[in-house]
Every structure is written in structure tokens, then in C-alpha cells.
């Protein structure tokens, strides 16, 4: 190239076709590029059938479930921390109540407290990974997603650079009418 320049005979590079190409490509890519990235949350249907009879010699499992109501989250399971409250006689209220009375919106649900409580349970049951969600019929879908997020991992407990996994396998049960 330098040789050509020295001779001052060099043809200038014809950039017009490239310009055409680039101007067409840019609007197309701008249109196609998505600035919102998507993800998915896996869930399966609960197995249909009678609940398995648990025999005494079988190792006891946590069988954790979270009921989502218009008062808050009620965490249930075979853990002593959860059982003690049930034996007070009266109707047990939610153990993670909403921040505001009556749960006016998805923001009112105390997902941080739920994560903390589940973290405690995970400490005692490190092998458990399943959780059953039992929402009421008029609970909003966004609350469901927030609950699943809260149950999946604990962003405040980062050991080894990753958020600590709590109960990543979620099953959604029908709930009572």
C-alpha cells in the first residue's frame, strides 16, 4: 500500500458498498437486539396419588411446605422450630407475617424474613432441597415468583462467591379452595 501511495497512483478504497451494508445491518440489529434478558424457573406438578405412609424406621424428612395466604407465609414442616408454635392451642397464625396488615401488595410480603427462616432450617437439614408451595387462590402470581426467589437462595449469605442455595426445587400444590 505504501508503495502505491509513494507512486501517487493509488486508487482510493471504495467504501460506499460497505457503508450501504453497515447502514442496513445497524437498524436490523438494533431491532433484533433485546435489552431484556429472560430466565426460567422450573417447577413440576405434584405427584398424584395417596401420600406415602411413613414408617418409623424410615429416616425422617423435613417435608417443608410454605403456605402463602393474605396474611403472610406459613412455613410448615417436621422441624421442632416450626412445631412448637402449633401446640399453643389456638389457630396458628403465619410465622412470617406481612410487613403491613392485610398484605396490600407483593411488596408487603416479608421475603427477607422468609429467607432467614429457611436459612435456619437449611442449617439443620442440609440435604433437603425440596419445598412445596401452597398458595391461596387469590394470591398474585408475582408473590409466587418472589416466594420462589426467597426459597431458592440467600443473597446475603455468600460463601465462596455464590449465594447460598436453600431449597431450589419448588413444587406448586393446588391449595385449598
Amino acid at each position: 500500500m505504501s508503495k502505491g501511495k509513494r507512486g501517487e497512483q493509488a486508487e482510493e478504497l471504495d467504501l460506499v458498498p460497505i457503508m450501504n451494508l453497515v447502514t442496513i445491518l445497524i437498524p436490523f440489529l438494533l431491532m433484533a437486539s433485546s435489552f431484556v434478558s429472560l430466565a426460567v424457573i422450573d417447577s413440576t406438578l405434584p405427584a398424584i396419588g395417596a401420600p406415602q405412609e411413613s414408617s418409623d424406621d424410615q429416616e425422617e424428612t423435613l417435608s417443608l411446605s410454605i403456605a402463602v395466604t393474605d396474611e403472610g407465609f406459613t412455613v410448615m414442616g417436621n422441624d421442632t422450630a416450626l412445631k412448637s408454635k402449633d401446640e399453643e392451642g389456638e389457630e396458628p397464625g403465619p410465622n412470617v407475617p406481612c410487613k403491613q396488615l392485610g398484605c396490600p401488595g407483593p411488596e408487603a410480603y416479608d421475603t427477607k424474613e422468609l429467607t432467614r427462616l429457611l436459612g435456619e432450617l437449611k442449617d439443620r437439614w442440609p440435604d433437603e432441597e425440596n419445598v412445596i408451595l401452597v398458595p391461596e387462590p387469590d394470591v398474585e402470581y408475582e408473590v409466587l415468583i418472589r416466594t420462589m426467589d426467597a426459597a431458592r437462595n440467600d443473597p446475603n449469605n455468600t460463601s465462596g462467591g455464590k449465594a447460598r442455595e436453600l431449597f431450589p426445587y419448588v413444587v406448586i400444590a393446588g391449595g385449598a379452595e
Binding site: V36, S37, L38, A39, V40, I41, S43, T44, I145, I172
Partner: peptide, 10 residues
């Protein structure tokens, strides 16, 4: 269809 994938925004 028994395996659900809920689509969410990251």
C-alpha cells in the same frame, strides 16, 4: 405437560 417453566425477567 408436567414440567413447567415460568418465564421471568432476569
Amino acid at each position: 405437560f408436567g414440567n413447567f417453566r415460568f418465564v421471568v425477567i432476569k
